[in-house]
Nucleic acid binder design. Structure first.
Length: 842
DNA sequence: CACCCCGTAA
DNA sequence: TTTGGTACGGGGTG
């Protein structure tokens, strides 16, 4: 990849998207009335297999354009780096540059890595420690060195020299001076100041009293100190003090372990993982050795001042700004104040290599470092958390976003570890347990801990218990929610020695994500999605964006209104989008896929589902009905498609679907897009020969959806997913019973859409006018929505055309009591039999 | 239990 | 160029 690649800049990732969304796209979905005449009776002449072949060939041939780069088009993901003044060609290359994978941007800390380089694996293992992955596509990875990433590197045990030496070794050019300086200035002060928990109080601690003096003179930190006899107390550093100071010699142990000269390259990639593990073992021994030495020879003094829990965040944030981030490490093996917990992994629990890598980052020097581990959905985040708990062996508090995942975490703990069930308690609104022994695990929801007012009596009791205890480890599930105003309170309410944050998508659309650096700790590990799916740990997914032109009726209305809600509703109700959805469901059901359709908008959700005769779940669906529908989806061969609102993004335990269709979504939320894709990464069938999961995003052409869609995909594109654009679904013209194929039907739909939209607004206004103070029913919103629903039903006349289809599949699946349950039981038995048969075949 | 209300998140 | 429908968990009530 010579630097002169800048010549082809325009072909780069999102630039291609702009080209594709331009004017002259090959649309063959038809724009004339004729294309939509009823095709019932014109049975498709081909067999299913031929159908499949045809569609798949379409996917890989002429009717799509790849927005992302593809193999053979090396370097497009990085090409934006080489624009204008980003030309690196002036730099002189080392003679053996071909064997070195890194391009270093002298000014901005950007690093571009060639994945086809012979020393790629080593370089990647190193880079993941010191830089933030920005984008990791097939041939090129892009990283950035930042203050935070260097903090993470130092806290993982690397020294300034390690970083500089290894960067130099992997770089194609001489290490730029500016970058070297940046690394030096940013790493020097790290690790000087620590946050320590002692006897349920927080202390800011350092070996250097002068640093503490400086902090106390700071206008923000100074007033936070708890008034005591002494301003700064000094004691001899000892094991009993809770936290042993990470001396530089400790880092030396880690340095040796991390060092891997480029010259000593090995061909076999797989060996690498085992080596890393052994190195970590060696590292631990070294740590032990050094610790003993420290205690014998040195009489280090530790200085500290106390800060109340309520001010911790302020101090942490300020220290971050001052370039002196607080290190949090828990020397759990030498903590004999807090009781030990009897817990171990079951021998059957097998940790995968990347989980081990992640845990090595956390426990690399024999202590628990606070930080964040990022793994895609289905890659075993829970097991990482459980293994961490089994390592620390102290009381653990696990925080989840929903009651469902509380239950799941408990089940997983029982599945993977030998923990005594009496030692795990759950704490939610309908289950308020404590554990009886001195040490234990408590699993609860964020809101249970953060709720400030209106406490039920027995939850106050449990809350007091939690706050009175000193916790060894706090596991924060879905840690990306923590920066929220309310949820961030957990870190000040619960006194814990270490924190482990877990998430699949360390993303927010606001800028609060950086707060996690001081709220939890640095990002310790981030898995490479592409690599995991190539290795079969998560499913391979084909992503496609399907462009659906707007019908003239809908587009006219779209242009006529400036109201964004109305506009987005028109875009999602676009009849041609509905047709595309109908076609794709049919296609994939016949292929044997289980299909989930997502729609954020519940009006659209119901309309689509009812007309297609599929079951749907959204917020108001009562729990028993949800379960029934999900069971049927999982077991009943006749139920292969369900519709979900954004309920499916987070809080549903979804069965193993293999195909996903997105009809409407939430603006430009990258997290939602990634999370939805995550729903199919678990697919059990993923290791079948040639298995692919499918992810479709239906987008109405020439609407705002186009813009948001590309925003939403940004994260996945950076993870290496290639989104293909499909402008025509081959065979849709021959589709029997294609909906909305007449102008009349489409106009009826439009009327319904417009009515739905207006009534919601009107009713609220009327209610306000009529009742002024709105006595008796303080929440006008709920009433308004209900009324709107009724009015929409009253609009009856136009709905006549739908009546024959508009039968709720939900009701069919709902029934209660004996017969239905017996049916489900039979399905379950059948499924068991099939599984057993499959096992005996192997 | 079934229902409502409330605050909060994204 | 960037908003607010929707859904949740928690607390009550009869």
């Amino acid at each position: 990849m010579p630097p002169k690649r800048k010549a082809t800049t325009a072909a780069g990732g999102r630039a291609a998207k702009r080209v594709a969304s331009g004017v002259n796209t090959p649309v063959s979905m038809g724009s004339s009335e004729d294309d939509y005449t009823d095709t019932v009776g014109a049975e498709a002449s081909e067999t299913e297999a031929e159908d499949l072949k045809k569609l798949i060939s379409k996917f890989s041939a002429s009717s799509y354009r790849q927005k992302n780069h593809s193999a053979g088009n090396v370097g497009d993901a990085a090409s934006r780096l080489f624009k204008r003044d980003r030309d690196l060609s002036s730099l002189t290359l080392k003679p053996d540059h071909v064997n070195r994978p890194l391009w270093l941007d002298p000014d901005r800390g950007r690093i571009v890595m060639e994945t086809f380089s012979p020393s790629f694996k080593q370089a990647q293992n190193f880079l993941i420690n010191v830089a933030e992955p920005q984008s990791r596509t097939t041939n090129v990875h892009e990283y950035t060195i930042t203050g935070h990433s260097l903090f993470a590197a130092v806290s993982v045990g690397l020294t300034t020299n390690d970083i500089i030496r290894q960067l130099e070794a992997f770089s194609k050019t001489k290490l730029p001076e500016g970058l070297k300086e940046f690394i030096v200035t940013n790493t020097q002060s790290f690790g000087k100041v620590r946050l320590v928990l002692k006897h349920n109080s927080f202390y800011i601690e350092s070996q250097d009293a002068a640093v503490l003096q400086t902090l106390l003179r700071d206008e923000v930190i100074g007033p936070c100190r708890i008034e005591g006899a002494e301003e700064i107390s000094t004691e001899k550093a000892s094991k009993m003090a809770g936290l042993v100071i990470p001396g530089t010699k400790m880092a030396a142990g880690a340095r040796q372990a991390n060092e891997k000269p480029v010259e000593r390259l090995r061909d076999k990639d797989d060996d690498d993982d085992d080596d890393e593990f052994n190195d970590a073992e060696a590292e631990k021994d070294m740590t032990e050795f050094l610790r003993d030495e420290d205690d014998d020879d040195e009489t280090d003094q530790v200085h500290s001042f106390q800060v109340p829990g309520s001010h911790i965040q302020k101090v942490q944030e300020r220290c971050n700004q001052l370039g002196l981030p607080l290190t949090e490490e828990y020397d759990f093996r030498n903590d004999d104040v807090n009781a030990n917990l009897v817990i171990d992994l079951k021998p059957t629990a097998q940790i995968r290599y990347y989980q081990e890598h992640a845990l090595n980052k956390m426990f690399g020097n024999g202590r628990a470092r606070s930080g964040i581990i990022v793994l895609p959905c289905g890659a075993g985040k829970t097991l990482v958390g459980i293994t961490a708990a089994c390592t620390v062996k102290k009381s653990v508090i696990v925080l989840c976003t929903s009651g469902m995942s509380v239950v799941q975490w408990r089940a997983e703990f029982l599945k993977w570890s030998n923990i005594n069930p009496d030692d795990i308690a759950t704490f939610t609104s309908d289950h308020k347990d404590k554990f009886n022994d001195k040490a234990g695990i408590i699993i609860c929801t964020y809101s249970m801990v953060t709720q400030a007012s209106r406490r039920a009596h027995d939850s106050q009791v449990v809350m007091d218990f939690i706050m009175s205890k000193e916790w060894g480890l706090m596991i924060l599930d879905e840690v990306h929610v923590v920066p929220a105003e309310m949820f961030r309170k957990v870190t000040e309410k619960v006194a814990t020695h270490s924190k482990l944050g877990l998430t699949a998508t360390l993303l927010r659309e606001d800028d609060k994500i950086k707060d996690l650096n001081f709220l939890i700790g640095p990002k310790l590990y981030e898995a490479n999605w592409l690599q995991l799916s190539e290795e079969g740990h998560i499913a391979r997914v084909q992503c496609a964006e399907v462009w659906c032109p707007m019908t003239t009726e809908f587009y006219t209305e779209y242009l006529r209104t400036k109201n964004t809600n109305k506009r987005s509703l028109l875009s999602t109700m676009n009849p041609r989008k509905y047709q595309a959805c109908q076609f794709l469901i049919d296609f994939h059901e016949r292929r044997g896929d289980k299909v989930i359709v997502f729609s954020d908008n519940v009006y659209a959700l119901k309309k689509y589902a009812l007309k297609l005769g599929k079951a749907f779940i959204y917020g108001d669906t009562p729990p028993h009905e949800r379960i029934r529908i999900l069971e049927n989806f999982q077991l009943n061969p006749d139920v292969n498609t369900i519709f979900l609102s954004k309920i499916g993004d987070t809080s549903l335990d979804l069965p193993e679907a293999t195909c996903l269709i997105q009809v409407s979504s939430h603006y430009g939320s990258r997290r939602q897009e990634a999370q939805r894709l995550g729903r199919i990464l678990r697919a059990k069938r993923r290791n079948d020969e040639g298995f692919n999961a499918f992810f479709y995003s239906l987008v109405s052409k020439d609407t705002n959806e186009m813009f948001y869609s590309s925003k939403r995909q940004a994260f996945l594109v950076d993870q290496g997913y290639a989104f293909k654009v499909i402008t025509h679904l081959n065979g849709i013209d021959q589709m029997p019973k294609l909906a909305f194929s007449t102008g009349l039907e489409r106009r009826e739909l439009l009327t319904d859409v417009m009515l739905q939209n207006e009534t919601a607004g009107d009713v609220e206004k009327i209610e306000g006018d009529l009742f002024g103070e709105r006595q008796g029913r303080p929440s006008g919103k709920k009433g308004a929505r209900r009324t709107a629903g009724t009015l929409s039903e009253l609009s009856g006349g136009q709905d006549m055309a739908y009546v024959e289809y508009n039968k709720s599949r939900n009701k069919e699946l709902k029934g209660k009591g004996g017969p239905q349950n017996a049916f489900i039981r039979k399905l379950k038995r059948d499924a068991e039999k099939r599984k057993a048969a499959a096992r005996s075949l192997q």
